[in-house]
Simulated assay, not measured.
Amino acid sequence: MRERDFARIHSISEAELVAAQVGNTVVRLNPDIEILLNGLRAAGEIMVLTRNESAVHEKIGTVEKVVVGPKASMVLGAQIDLRIFPSRWAFGFAVEKTDKEGALKRSLQFFDAQGNAVFKVHARPATNLEEWSVLLGNLRHAEQGDAIVVQPTEPAAALGEPADLDQLREHWAGLTDTHQFFPMLQKLNLPRLQALQMVGTDYAWQLDHAAVAGLFNAVAGTDLPIMAFVGNRGCIQIHAGPITKTALMGPWLNVMDETFHLHLRLDQIASAWAVRKPTSDGHVSSVEVYDNAGELIIQFFGKRQEGTDERPQWRSVVEALPVLSQTNAA
């Protein structure tokens, strides 16, 4: 059984379960982002994993460019592309365990104050284990007790008076870059999903549930490069490139490519939306997928170069996805 599922069954956090093995197969670490990222750059090939309740995003590659900041840090590279929010990282652990075949598996696991996993790193056969050991030494926590104190779930921050439809449409129409979207929502005191529901079908329209699988079917095996974003409060992980091999296994829709694995729970999708955002280079199309709590599960874009319009093939894929009918909505 996976640690996440075992912890849920026993009403504890995953971080508490991992911490209980400190002194045995686990070493507690400081969640120091700068030391971690620079150490991983020296370690060579690794697998990085970021997940939320409904999606798991795995990338195999090397850490290339590292940008460290007090509020956000980044890894930029051909394979590993991350956006990290250090204030959300509370606990870290190095874990070693033997799999069913007797092979030793090494990982670094990081959690938020509530004990939820925000980021994991797994060693690969090509990982430089000498540099991996140096990194563990540099991150080792002075306290190696087997218990941690997690915090209760934080209540959602209270928003001020939300903007009305005219204000939303005025600001939306004035966008010149996709990175302006989140600051716009903050300024207007609007949750992301509520903004999509309000703005009007020229900018956002709800898709049929089948559209998510339809998106994968439309792009898999083609040379159309897409971007897939999966995140939580502490990390967002990005894939950029084509996808090739997809498979449906129970409720999970999977991508099983050489350097990219994605696992998406279709049964936990509450709504999917096609979204159109203006930019100085023409509008950009995306598909956003939400759970029952209104939280973003996964987001898809067509890969494009800054300063160029999006690929017509991607725009055609998005605009051809089935729209939610009134019958299905009821």
Rank of each mutant, 00 (worst) to 15 (best):
M1V: 11
E3M: 11
I9P: 00
S13C: 11
A20D: 01
A20G: 02
V27H: 03
N30G: 07
P31C: 11
I33S: 04
L37M: 07
L37E: 01
V48P: 00
R51Y: 12
K59A: 08
G61V: 01
T62D: 06
T62M: 14
K65N: 05
V66M: 05
V68Q: 03
G69Q: 02
A78S: 08
I80S: 01
I84V: 07
F85H: 04
F85P: 00
F85G: 02
S87K: 09
R88W: 12
E101D: 15
E101R: 11
L104G: 07
R106N: 01
F111M: 09
A113F: 06
A117F: 02
V118Q: 06
V121I: 06
H122G: 10
A123F: 05
E130F: 11
L135C: 03
G137P: 03
L139Y: 14
R140Q: 14
H141Q: 09
E143D: 14
V150M: 05
T153K: 05
T153F: 08
E154G: 06
P155C: 12
P162N: 05
Q167P: 11
Q167H: 08
H171N: 01
Q180S: 05
F182Y: 01
N189E: 03
R192S: 02
L193M: 13
L196W: 10
L196C: 08
T201M: 07
D208L: 03
A210N: 10
V212L: 04
A220Y: 13
A220W: 04
G221R: 15
T222M: 04
F229D: 02
F229S: 04
G231E: 13
N232Q: 07
Q237T: 00
I238S: 05
L253M: 11
M256W: 02
D257R: 10
F260I: 04
H261V: 13
H263M: 15
L264R: 04
D267Q: 04
Q268W: 00
S271W: 01
V275E: 06
R276P: 00
D281P: 01
I297N: 06
I297M: 12
Q299W: 07
F301H: 01
G302E: 00
R304G: 03
R304D: 11
E310S: 07
R311N: 10
R315W: 01
S325M: 07
